[in-house]
Design a protein around this nucleic acid. Structure first.
Length: 668
DNA sequence: GCAAATACCGCCCTCTGCTGGAGTATG
DNA sequence: ACATACTCCAGCAGAGGGCGGTATTTGC
């Protein structure tokens, strides 16, 4: 094999804090020594470990690692890269020995080793391996890879071999450890190198992030963790600054890498020291600030809430949290009664309510917001991005609330109830307008600006305006004349002007009527045409209903004509008008008062008796003046008022008919 | 160490506008 | 009686405001 790595501390000082590693190293001596091989020829990496061979390949842009291990083992792989100084690349192979006995051997590829990929493997506690008393739960592998690893998409297959070895630990080599021990293992590795591929412990969160947000064009994508599967591999692109290193000359880059920790940067007193965080882009010239920052990468949360047992990193955070329990709100707004737990909330409140300061401005429109998250949400209305997908239909929303609200359409949930009628609604706004419209007084109405229409809802007024007052490109013709309109309301108003208009005028006399068919009947009075002939006596008539009257009167034995009886003296008349005139002059009082109009109408329909002159009278009537005509619903017979043919017909069954109805009957 | 400032995520709300079914008026 | 047009009404979604809560950064 290659050269055993008595790699100098500088090689790996960026990986983690030295003291931490040393402490961790003492905690466990079980970790296996691993060795890495890079097989450029196979265009892949292969890790041989005590648990089997890990095979990594790129499938559809995703790195898929397949540890060929025993069943029931759950592996979480943490991949990290560590950059080497160029002069270190002389080593064809380096072995890095972690404190717990893990041996990491780094082999340089043909084109020179530039990075170290750290592969950390967590073993499921339920695995069979855990039955081995001294078996560490974490298995960490350091893999040497070239910069090409950053374009893993291009690799077809990577095979990663982890080889167990037992190597003595030296104090110097501890600093090179890439495999922290047991419990702190993952956390420590997280603190390592600036360019890192790592697997997080928070697997569900990662999966969620993957689904919800589009990852940056990372070199690794997450392989979704699924329950019940034997192998679970998570790869997380640590940051997006990898490309920067590709642009940086190796010498410069390595210089930066070396300055990755406070210890390294303290080497030279003459040079102004700068401390770079290797996990993020944080840089500080003060070691105190640097150390303080590094705590943010720690999961240590020593301050626990005594009420809910939630832990916090700082006392201030804990205090704020406890205040949420107690309701203590020390930050009070000077302009209103609001009070808040934190100063930030107060500042934000003041911006919303009082100062109206909106620092976050949209570059594509005039929108500005108090909060960055609101601007982010707003920008989705420009981009159309809809990251929140409904699992039951194709709907996708731009924010979580809309998706939650949408889900009610599937669940049928109606959480809002009208306090008056207990009707339920899916949205509060719907309920609010329901209460306003149904249960409130002085409900505001919406007056159409173009007509007298008043509409309860503004949205419906909009519909009204759209349907009736909007300009239509297509011409709408009046049904009565040749006028055309582009607005429906104007058309309707215009057509109403034709409603009582007697547009049809007789050329031979002053007669005028509304409908053409009425004029057609009238013309017969001038032409003498009588198209309706009695089949019994061959007598001819101009109108069909006159023929019907004639037939009943002279040829129907069952026909009983109406007789109008004077209410004062009882004298019978064939015409109601004649009876009325007589009645006004009649001095004989039979104890019956003159009836009301309605009463008269009722009365006359009950009267019986044939009247010979009715036929002639009706026959001479202009068609539009035949208003005193009844239609008997049982027989569909047209009966001029006064002919009351059926005394047993209920009043509601009789209807006053119009000329139009008569003509309709005639047409039949 | 503390606190202010800042950032982020989440939740809930309101306002707004469109849609389509139901009921009603009208021709 | 029927067709059509119109209004009423609830359902639904888009956009944005406001606040709760927590984490991180930064200055002192």
């Amino acid at each position: 094999m290659g050269t055993e790595a008595s790699a100098s501390p500088e090689h790996f000082t960026k990986i983690k804090g030295t003291d931490l590693i040393q402490e961790k190293a003492k905690e466990s001596d079980v970790d296996k020594v691993s060795r890495l091989k890079e097989r450029q020829s196979s265009c892949g990496l292969e890790v041989d470990c005590s648990y089997g061979v890990l095979q990594a390949k790129i499938v559809e842009g995703e790195l898929e690692l397949t540890p060929q291990t025993q069943e029931n083992e759950k592996h979480i792989l943490t991949l990290q890269t560590v950059h080497f100084a160029t002069d270190e690349m002389d080593h064809q192979e380096m072995t890095v020995e972690p404190a717990e006995g893990m041996h990491v051997m780094v082999q340089q590829g043909e084109s020179g080793l530039q990075s170290l990929l750290v592969l950390q493997q967590d073993i499921n506690v339920e695995s069979e391996l855990n039955e081995i008393p001294h078996q560490n739960l974490h298995h960490c592998v350091a893999i040497s890879i070239q910069e090409e690893v950053f374009s893993l998409h291009e690799l077809e297959v990577m095979e990663i071999n982890v080889v167990e070895e037992s190597v003595e630990i030296s104090s110097e080599e501890d600093k090179l450890t890439v495999n922290p021990p047991l419990d702190e293992n993952t956390e420590s590795v997280k603190d390592e190198g600036k360019d890192i591929y790592r697997a997080e412990d928070e697997v569900p969160q990662l999966c969620e992030e993957r689904e919800i947000t589009d990852q940056k064009e990372g070199l690794f994508t997450f392989d979704k963790l699924r329950e019940g599967e034997k192998e679970e591999i998570i790869l997380l692109p640590a940051n997006s600054e990898i490309e920067e290193h590709e642009d940086i000359p190796s010498s410069e880059q390595d210089t930066d890498e070396v300055s990755g920790t406070a210890k390294n940067q303290a080497k030279t007193k003459d040079v102004k020291q700068t401390f770079h965080c290797e996990i993020c882009i944080f840089t500080s010239s003060k070691i105190s600030c640097f150390n303080r920052h590094m705590k943010t990468h720690s999961d240590e949360k020593p301050h626990m809430c005594h009420l809910c047992l939630k832990a916090f990193r700082t006392v201030t955070l804990l205090r704020n949290h406890v205040n949420t329990h107690t309701g203590t709100r020390p930050y009070k707004c000077s302009d209103c009664d609001m009070a808040f737990v934190t100063s930030g909330e107060l500042v934000r409140h003041r911006r919303y309510k009082h100062t109206h300061e909106k620092p976050f401005k949209c570059t594509m429109c005039k929108y500005a917001s108090v909060e960055a998250s609101k601007l982010k949400r707003h920008i989705r209305s420009h981009t159309g991005e809809r990251p929140f997908h409904c699992c039951l239909c194709n709907y996708a929303s731009k924010d979580t609330y809309k998706l939650k609200r949408h889900m009610r359409t599937h669940s049928g949930e109606k959480p809002y109830e009208c306090y008056v009628c207990h009707a339920r609604f899916t949205q509060s706004g719907t309920m609010k307008i329901h209460i306003l419209q149904k249960h409130s007084e002085n409900v505001p109405k919406h007056q159409c600006p173009h007509c007298a229409t008043v509409i309860a809802r503004k949205s419906d007024l909009r519909v009204h305006l759209r349907n009736l007052h909007s300009y239509k490109a297509a011409e709408m013709k009046c049904r009565y004349c040749t006028d055309v309109f582009h607005e429906r309301y104007a058309l309707i108003q215009h057509q109403k002007t034709h409603r009582n208009e007697k547009r049809f005028k007789c050329d031979d006399c002053s007669y005028a009527c509304k409908q053409e068919r009425h004029m057609r009947v009238h013309k017969r009075t001038h032409t003498g045409e009588k198209p309706f002939t009695c089949l019994s006596c061959n007598k001819c008539f101009r109108q069909k209903q006159l023929l019907n009257v004639h037939f009943k009167k002279y040829h129907d034995k069952n026909f009983i004509p109406t007789v109008y009886e004077c209410p004062k003296c009882g004298k019978g008349f064939s015409r109601w008008n004649n009876m009325r005139k007589h009645s006004e002059l009649c001095e004989v009082i039979r104890g019956k008062a003159v009836q009301s109009a309605k009463g008269r109408k009722t009365k006359k329909k009950k009267q019986k008796g044939p009247k010979q002159d009715v036929k002639e009278e009706v026959e001479q009537m202009p068609i539009e003046d035949i208003s005193n005509v009844n239609i008997e619903r049982h027989t569909n017979e047209i009966v001029p008022v006064g002919y009351g043919i059926a005394t047993d017909v209920a009043e509601e069954q009789k209807t006053e008919v119009t000329c139009e109805m008569i003509l309709n009957m005639m047409d039949k």
